[in-house]
Amino acid sequence: MDSGAIRRRLALGVAVLTGAGLMALALPGTAQAAASTCSGREVKKLSFATGSVHVYRSGGYVCALTTPRRAGGRQVMSVTVQARGNRPVTDKGRFSQHAGPVTVHAGHRCVRVGGSVGAVAVTSGWILC
Rank of each mutant, 00 (worst) to 15 (best):
A71P: 12
A11T: 05
A83N: 00
G93T: 06
G19V: 10
S39R: 12
I6C: 10
T18D: 10
A71F: 05
S96W: 03
Q97W: 13
R57L: 10
A99M: 08
G100V: 01
A34T: 07
V113W: 02
A99D: 02
M23W: 10
R87T: 14
A119P: 10
T103I: 02
G51R: 00
H54D: 13
L12E: 15
V89A: 13
L128D: 10
Y56T: 02
S39A: 08
R94F: 13
T103C: 06
W126R: 06
F95W: 07
L17D: 07
H108E: 15
S96N: 12
L65G: 11
T37D: 15
V117N: 05
T67C: 06
E42L: 11
V117E: 05
A11L: 08
H54W: 11
S78I: 00
G29N: 14
A71N: 11
F48I: 04
M77Y: 01
N86W: 04
G73F: 06
A15R: 01
V104Y: 00
R9H: 12
A35L: 09
A121T: 01
T37P: 07
A5K: 07
L22Y: 06
K45E: 15
H105S: 08
G4V: 12
A5L: 08
V113N: 04
Q75A: 12
W126Q: 11
A106Q: 03
H98L: 13
E42A: 15
F95K: 04
K45R: 15
G72Q: 04
E42Y: 09
Y56R: 09
T66F: 08
T103K: 02
S116A: 14
G60R: 01
L12G: 08
R7E: 15
Q82Y: 00
R41V: 12
V111T: 09
A5F: 04
A64N: 05
H54E: 14
Y56I: 09
V43W: 10
S47G: 14
T30M: 13
T50G: 00
V14R: 01
V14D: 06
G72I: 01
A71Y: 13
P68H: 12
S36L: 08
K45P: 10
C110H: 00
C38Q: 05
R70V: 15
V102Q: 00
A5Y: 02
M1A: 14
S47P: 11
A24Q: 15
A34G: 14
A20L: 14
I127L: 02
T18R: 04
L65R: 11
G13C: 00
A119K: 10
A5N: 03
R57K: 15
A31Y: 11
V120W: 05
R84M: 09
L17C: 14
V111P: 09
V53E: 04
D91M: 02
G19C: 13
G4P: 09
S96F: 05
R84G: 07
F48R: 11
G40K: 01
